[in-house]
């Protein structure tokens, strides 16, 4: 009989503890009540795999609404922006991220265009230095241009030519 009462008491205490802690957790969670703007700030960095090239904050599909609810819920639970992005990335792959991280094969994405641009710039510079060696600079061009009155003459010359 006593054992029964003891066990019932333990169960009651456990139940009360759960209810109490649950309430405390809820109260704590309610302390972090994310605004739509906070949810949007993360949403616009994500793309759902279903919608075509539309960031999550601008998409009206049911799936995207659920994703935004998930972000809100995670923010409520105190998750950081990076943790939330990582969560979606782990769940659905890095295609959900607006910008792939610059590691592994994706390093190519970020470094190839500037590298090619630099190579292009080097080629052009080299081309110029090669041609400079053959150059016979017409110095009179400079001296003529430096003449303050030449501009008037140049325009007039240009204009008369086509009249």
């Amino acid at each position: 009989m006593e054992i029964k009462w003891v066990s019932k008491s333990i169960l009651l205490v456990m139940l009360l503890t759960c209810i109490t802690f649950n309430n405390i957790t809820n109260v704590l969670a309610q302390d972090i009540n994310p605004t739509d703007d906070e949810v949007n700030a993360i949403s616009k960095q994500l793309y759902c795999p279903v919608c075509e090239s539309i960031p999550l904050d601008a998409c009206g599909t049911q799936a995207c609404i659920q994703w935004r609810d998930t972000i809100r819920s995670k923010l409520s639970n105190g998750w950081s922006e990076e943790e939330i992005k990582q969560y979606f990335s782990d769940q659905y792959g890095i295609r959900v991220l607006a910008e792939p991280p610059a590691d592994g094969f994706n390093t190519l994405l970020w470094y190839l265009p500037p590298s090619l641009f630099l190579i292009g710039a080097l080629l052009v510079t080299r081309l110029l230095s090669n041609t400079k060696n053959k150059l016979h600079v017409q110095h009179e061009t400079i001296s003529n241009i430096d003449n303050a009155n030449h501009y008037v003459e140049r325009i007039e010359h240009d204009l008369k030519k086509w009249q």
Partner: peptide
């Protein structure tokens, strides 16, 4: 073209969004 290349070579789909 990078999303296609990434998928062909690594099998991984990526999104190249405005930040890039």
């Amino acid at each position: 073209i990078y999303p296609l290349i990434s998928e062909i070579i690594t099998g991984q789909k990526v999104t190249v969004g405005p930040p890039f």
